[in-house]
Design a protein around this nucleic acid. Structure first.
Length: 414
RNA sequence: GGUGGGGUGGCUGAGCGGUUGAAAGCGCUGGUCUCGAAAACCGGUAGUCGUGUCAAAACGGCUCGUGGGUUCAAAUCCCACCCCCACCGCCA
């Protein structure tokens, strides 16, 4: 959510930013400002009347005062109702507005995304390469059939070396983050509706989440949902910032809609494992945090020796809460396509404002922190990328060097 | 799932319709004393939002788990919900 003061005082700049990702007809700042005028006016009136009543209630009043206060009470109730409605309207309108974009984010949609860095070259095969579903099945790494029998389409089971490879990836990520001093959190995987709202996933993603009807809880779609809520309603000690966390969770997504050929296998499932990095930072330092998260995400993928691109997303491709997003996209040879494996974003104070996460600055004033998140990483696309990019002529798969110690072998299938 | 107890300031804990934003103690902090310290004694000490200002002062709102209600007036009475503790039941 944006600061209403920012909108009031810098209307032209706000509008200019919005136009990078929205059409003019899709937002209306004047209505928002009018609602706020209204709100301020009512608030002032109510507080004045409340002060009057408080004064009278300090002592035992006489009959005349009681009569007056009774009338005053009615008036207060009336105004408060109006105020409540205006506040709700304002909140609803404000919630639909996106974040202010960073200056270097190109306007427009996906077509304006820019590759800013490329790691390695796509592998060249002097044989007919297989896709990851075939490789995983042949090598006994993934059991699609039995998982589908138990849970339906979009699920798979890791088996044998496949399970070990999955766990090796997670261990590799965990060791990496610990080395950099990040604090490890395993949050609950189920969360309540309020938390999903604060993290910004409601109302937009309501249908993409799994809901436990009886308890009103949903399964997390990313541990960002929990990390964003972790310090909700807290005032953090300034000297502890930036707080750097990483969390593991299985992520659950309904992914309602048709499956496409390019999303078969493990590329888009209902359930996958992910480790997420997260920073709570002082505003002045949040772009340093961004640079650090991006660097670490790149190092993680590069450490696996895979070919991938770092891509600056254009305005309309960034999610609404984010001021800037850079994706890492890994090459999937059989699909001849790059797939996102990490998303590095700075939400500025947009999420912190919803969750009311603040710190005391050196003048003793409370300020919102900035929140940033980056996958580090999701396994479900790294796994197929490893299989496909590292496959050998004899059908085996070379294990990335950094994972060999966890698996105790250099090739899958040997 | 059931029964009982409970949620008050940084902490412990009193208050159970009206000068109570809240006793007392601890803690923290300023001072007296002392060469210095301890002890003792005297004083100060909740948060938050807003108006205001270069800052401040000052003023006002809200806050005793959360949200409603009753009342001229609620930490105190009523209702709902959340959380914590104890015991019983259930438990792949």
């Amino acid at each position: 959510m944006l600061d209403i003061k920012l909108i009031r005082e810098n209307k032209a700049q706000v509008e200019q930013s919005f136009l990078k990702r929205l059409n003019k007809k899709d937002f209306d700042l004047d209505t928002v400002i009018n609602l706020d005028d209204n709100r301020r006016h009512l608030l002032l009136q109510v507080e004045k009347l409340l002060a009057q009543r408080n004064k009278a209630s300090k002592t035992k009043p006489d009959a005349k005062t009681i009569k007056e206060m009774k009338a005053l009470g009615e008036e207060i109730k009336n105004l408060e109702e109006q105020l409540k409605k205006v506040e709700a309207d304002l909140l609803a309108k404000l919630s639909t507005l996106p974040n202010i974009l960073a200056d270097d984010v190109p306007a427009g949609g996906k077509e304006n995304n820019q590759i800013i860095k490329t790691f390695k070259k796509p592998p060249h095969f002097d044989f007919e390469p297989k896709n990851h579903v075939e490789l995983a099945t042949n090598l006994g790494l993934i059991d699609y059939q039995r998982a589908t029998k138990m849970s339906g389409s979009g699920f798979w089971a890791y088996t044998g070396d496949g399970a070990l490879l999955e766990w090796a990836l997670l261990n590799y990520f965990i060791d990496f983050h610990r080395k950099h001093g990040y604090q490890f959190i395993i949050p609950p995987f189920l969360l309540n509706e309020k938390s999903a709202y604060i993290s910004g996933h409601l109302p937009k993603f309501k249908d993409d989440l799994y809901w436990i009807e009886k308890d009103g809880l949903c399964l997390n779609a990313t541990s960002e949902m929990m990390l964003g809520n972790y310090h909700a309603e807290e005032i953090l000690p300034a000297e502890k910032l930036p707080l750097k966390y990483f969390a593991y969770s299985t992520c659950f997504r309904r992914e309602a809609g048709a499956y496409r050929a390019e999303e078969r296998g493990m590329v888009r499932g209902h359930e996958f494992n992910k480790i997420e990095m997260f920073h709570f930072a002082k505003p002045a330092e949040s772009w340093d945090s961004f640079a650090e998260l991006l660097k670490y995400a790149e190092e993680l993928v590069a450490g696996l020796d895979l070919h991938f691109n770092t891509v600056q997303l254009a305005a309309a491709d960034c999610s609404a809460a984010m001021a800037k997003t850079v994706d890492l996209e890994v090459w999937i040879p059989s699909m001849k396509i790059y797939k996102e494996v990490s998303s590095v974003s700075n939400a500025l104070e947009y999420q912190a404002r919803r969750g009311n996460v603040r710190f005391k600055d050196k003048d003793g004033r409370n300020q919102f922190v900035h929140t940033l998140n980056a996958s580090g990483l999701a396994t479900s696309r790294i796994f197929p990328a490893i299989l496909e990019q590292n496959q050998q002529k004899d059908g085996t798969v070379k294990v990335p060097k950094v994972l060999q110690k966890y698996l105790g072998k250099k090739f899958l299938g040997k």
